[in-house]
Design a protein around this nucleic acid. Structure first.
Length: 591
RNA sequence: GCGCCGUUGGUCCAGUGGUAGGACAUUGGCUUCCCAAGCCAAUAGCCCGGGUUCAAUUCCCGGACGGCGCACCA
C-alpha cells in the first residue's frame, strides 16, 4: 500500500475536501459526471487567492496585460491551431483483448503511409484490411474492426440549427493568439509585451482521474510573452541566483537525479537552452513557494526528445509530488512563431509587428518590371506565374541577370516547364530603397499553469498531522496569503456578554479588510480544530479578561502558541503577521 | 474506452432475502475560565434502472460514479 493513508494516517485529502467544502464531485444529485468538480466555499476562496497571487506575480509585477476571451470559438480557429487534426484521435479497439490503439499509428508503422491521421476513418479501416494488421497486444487480426474518431474537444453549435460549428477551447492560449492583432495595437506595436489570461478550458478526456488532477473542465493561468527573437533578451540578472531543482532529459534517460543549479549556472552550462524559459523557471519558483508548494517535493523536469510538441525546441514542466506521483503543474515552452504563423496563414489579420530600425537603412535591391504586353501574348496563361518567378529570381540574385544584354534569353522554370523569356521584356534594374524597419513575427514564451492542480498540490502539501496535548490534530498549514479565512474569532463561552463582544470584534476585523469568521458552537478547543482544518492561520478568543481590560488572546495555527494583546492593536497585528511578522512582537505569551 | 475491485446518514465504516448499526461530525440543552472532555436529546443513509422473489439495500443483468492497472494525455 502506498496510498495517501501512509502519510496522513488521520486525514485523507479527498475526505477533508468533501467534508470541509474545498471541492467535490459535481452534480452528485444526478449521479455525478466524471471529470467535473465543484469548488465549495473554502475551495473557491482558496482558488481565488491562488489566482490573485499568480496575477500579482506574473501580470502586475511584470507590467503585462490581462484579457478575458470567450471559451467558445469557431471551428476555423482550431483548424489553424492544429487542434482539429491533432485532437482527433482514431481509435481501434481489439475485439479479443480489449486494448485500444491509435489506428493511424498502426497504419503508419506498418505501411508507407506517412500521415494516416489526415485520412478518413473508412480509408484507415481499408488499409488495416489490405495489410492484414494485427493487434500489437495479442496478435489477433484487426481487419473488419471499426475505426472510430475520438475528438478531445467539446463540440457545440453556434446559433440555431447547424449554422456554425464551434468548440470549447482546449487551452486558453488560442484566445490570446487570435486577438493578437488588436493586442499589439494596444501595446502600441512595441515588442516585447506579455498577455495573460486566467480562464476555463475544456478537454473531453477519455479517462479523468485522481480528483482535480485530470478533469474535463479546468482553469488555466497562461502568459504569452511576445518577444522579438533577434533583439529581446530576458532580464536574467533579476533571477540569476535563484536555485532551480532541475531534472534534465539526460538525467532521466541515464541514472541521473535532480540537480540544483542557479538560473545563471543553468544558462551557462546550457542545461536550459532557452534564456527566456530559464528566466521564467526562476520567476515561478518564488511563486510556488509563496502559495505553499513544498520545495522538497518540487522539481523542474525537461521534456524528453520524443515528448516535445512539434513547435517547441525546449520545454520544461514544473512538477509536484502528490500521493507519491509527480504531477505537472506548469508547462514552460518556447513556442517560437508557430502559433502566430499558423494563424497568419489561415486568418485575415496581421500577426506581425513592424519593428522600426534605429536608423533607416538604404539597400540596393534588384527588381524586374516585366512587360506584360509581351509576356501575355507570348506565354498565355503561364505569363503571370512566369512574372512572379522572375520577381523571385531577381530578389534572390540569380546570376542570369548579370551582364544582361537585350537579346539574351532568360531561362525560367514555372508551372513545371522551362521557358525562355527575352531579356528586353524584363526590364531588370537595381534600385535603391530605404527601409525604415521590418515586419517581425514575434516568438512566444509560454508559462502555462494548471490552477486546479496547483490548488490540489497546495492542499496536499499543506495537510499536516501533529499532536497537541496528547491528541492527534490535523491542520492545513496554508500560507496566510492564500488561506480562505484569515482569522477566527471566538468567545471562550457564549455567555456573560463574551459572545456579543466577540461578534462585534469579528465585525471590526472585517471592516479592517480581514477575512474573519465567528464561531461559538461547542468547546473552545473544538473551534480551534475546525479552523485548523480549513487552514485559518489565526484565532482570537474573547475571555473574561477581555471584559475587564480589552485584551484578547491571539493564537498561531501551526505552533498553537498564544499571546495576549489589546483589542486596539489586533487589526494591525494580524495584518503584519499575515505578511510574515513575528507573533512575539505583538504581545506577551500566554501561560 | 477495456479489465479488476468498490458504492450504506455530512464523513469513515459494519451488516442483512423480511428496509439497517457504530464511530466521528452537526444541532439543541446541562456542565466547563483556552486546545476534538463528559452527560441528555435531536437531525440524518442502503447510487440509478431492469430482472428473479410473496418480499431485494442484500441475488442477477445493465448503467452512473469512484479507486487501481492498461490505453490516452496534442
Amino acid at each position: 500500500m502506498s496510498d495517501a493513508s501512509d502519510e496522513h494516517p488521520e486525514t485523507d485529502l479527498m475526505e477533508l475536501a468533501k467534508r470541509r467544502g474545498f471541492f467535490f464531485q459535481a452534480s452528485e444529485a444526478y449521479g455525478g459526471v466524471a471529470g467535473f468538480y465543484t469548488y465549495g466555499p473554502e475551495g473557491a476562496t482558496l482558488k481565488q487567492q491562488v489566482e490573485d497571487a499568480w496575477r500579482d506575480r506574473f501580470v502586475t509585477r511584470e507590467g503585462h496585460m490581462e484579457i478575458d476571451a470567450p471559451t467558445v470559438m469557431p471551428e476555423p480557429v482550431f483548424e489553424a491551431s492544429g487542434h482539429l487534426d491533432t485532437f482527433d484521435d482514431m481509435i481501434v479497439e481489439c475485439p479479443s483483448c480489449g486494448e485500444s490503439h491509435r489506428a493511424d499509428h498502426l497504419v503508419e508503422d506498418a505501411t508507407d503511409v506517412a500521415d494516416a491521421e489526415a485520412l478518413p476513418t473508412e480509408q484507415v479501416e481499408a488499409l488495416i484490411v489490405d495489410h492484414g494488421l494485427d493487434c500489437p497486444a495479442c496478435g489477433e487480426p484487426l481487419a473488419g474492426v471499426d475505426v472510430t474518431d475520438f475528438n478531445l474537444m467539446f463540440e457545440t453549435a453556434i446559433g440555431p440549427g447547424s449554422s456554425q460549428a464551434g468548440y470549447l477551447r482546449p487551452e486558453t492560449a488560442q484566445g490570446i493568439f487570435v486577438e493578437f492583432s488588436r493586442l499589439k495595437e494596444y501595446a502600441r506595436n512595441q515588442l516585447p509585451f506579455g498577455v495573460a489570461q486566467i480562464g476555463r478550458a475544456y478537454r473531453n478526456e477519455i479517462s479523468p482521474r485522481r480528483g482535480l488532477v485530470r478533469v474535463r473542465e479546468f482553469t488555466q493561468a497562461e502568459l504569452e510573452h511576445f518577444v522579438d527573437p533577434e533583439t529581446d533578451e530576458p532580464p536574467l540578472e533579476r533571477v540569476a541566483d535563484v536555485e532551480l531543482p532541475l531534472y534534465s532529459a539526460d538525467a532521466q534517460q541515464g541514472d541521473g537525479d535532480i540537480e540544483t543549479l542557479t538560473v545563471a549556472e543553468a544558462v551557462d552550462e546550457n542545461v536550459v537552452t532557452s534564456d527566456w524559459v530559464a528566466f521564467y523557471l526562476g520567476l515561478a519558483r518564488s511563486f510556488y513557494e509563496r502559495i505553499g508548494v513544498d520545495m522538497e517535493r518540487f522539481r523542474y523536469r525537461q521534456h524528453l526528445p520524443g515528448e516535445l510538441a512539434h513547435y517547441a525546441s525546449d520545454c520544461w514542466d514544473a512538477e509536484a509530488e502528490v500521493d507519491g506521483n509527480w504531477i505537472e503543474i506548469t508547462g514552460f515552452a518556447y513556442r517560437g512563431d508557430y502559433d502566430l504563423s499558423k494563424h497568419a496563414k489561415y486568418a485575415d489579420a496581421d500577426f506581425t509587428v513592424f519593428q522600426q530600425y534605429d536608423d533607416p537603412v538604404t539597400v540596393e535591391r534588384a527588381v524586374v518590371d516585366p512587360d506584360m504586353s509581351v509576356l501575355g501574348p507570348e506565354f498565355g496563361s503561364a505569363a503571370g506565374d512566369i512574372a512572379a518567378e522572375l520577381d523571385r529570381m531577381a530578389a534572390a540574385g540569380d546570376e542570369q541577370f548579370e551582364n544582361l544584354s537585350d537579346d539574351d534569353v532568360i531561362r525560367v522554370e514555372a508551372n513545371g516547364t522551362a521557358w525562355g523569356v527575352p531579356a528586353d521584356a524584363v526590364d531588370y534594374h537595381v534600385e535603391e530603397v530605404t527601409e525604415a524597419g521590418e515586419h517581425v513575427t514575434p516568438h512566444v514564451v509560454e508559462p502555462s499553469f494548471g490552477v486546479d492542480r496547483l490548488v490540489y498540490t497546495v492542499l496536499d502539501h499543506a495537510l499536516e498531522t501533529d499532536e497537541v496535548d496528547g491528541e492527534t490534530r490535523s491542520y492545513l498549514g496554508l500560507p496566510a496569503e492564500v488561506a480562505p479565512t484569515t482569522v477566527g474569532v471566538f468567545p471562550l463561552m457564549s455567555k456573560d456578554g463574551m459572545d456579543d463582544r466577540a461578534r462585534d470584534l469579528a465585525g471590526t476585523l472585517r471592516q479592517a479588510g480581514l477575512s474573519a469568521t465567528y464561531d461559538d458552537s461547542g468547546a473552545i478547543g473544538r473551534r480551534y480544530r475546525r479552523q485548523d482544518e480549513v487552514g485559518t492561520p489565526y484565532g482570537v478568543t474573547v475571555d473574561y479578561e477581555t471584559l475587564e481590560n480589552d485584551t484578547v488572546t491571539l493564537r498561531d495555527r501551526d505552533s498553537t502558541d498564544q499571546i495576549r494583546l489589546s483589542v486596539e492593536d489586533l487589526p494591525a497585528a494580524i495584518t503584519a503577521l499575515r505578511t510574515g511578522g513575528d507573533l512575539a512582537d505583538w504581545g506577551d505569551p500566554v501561560e
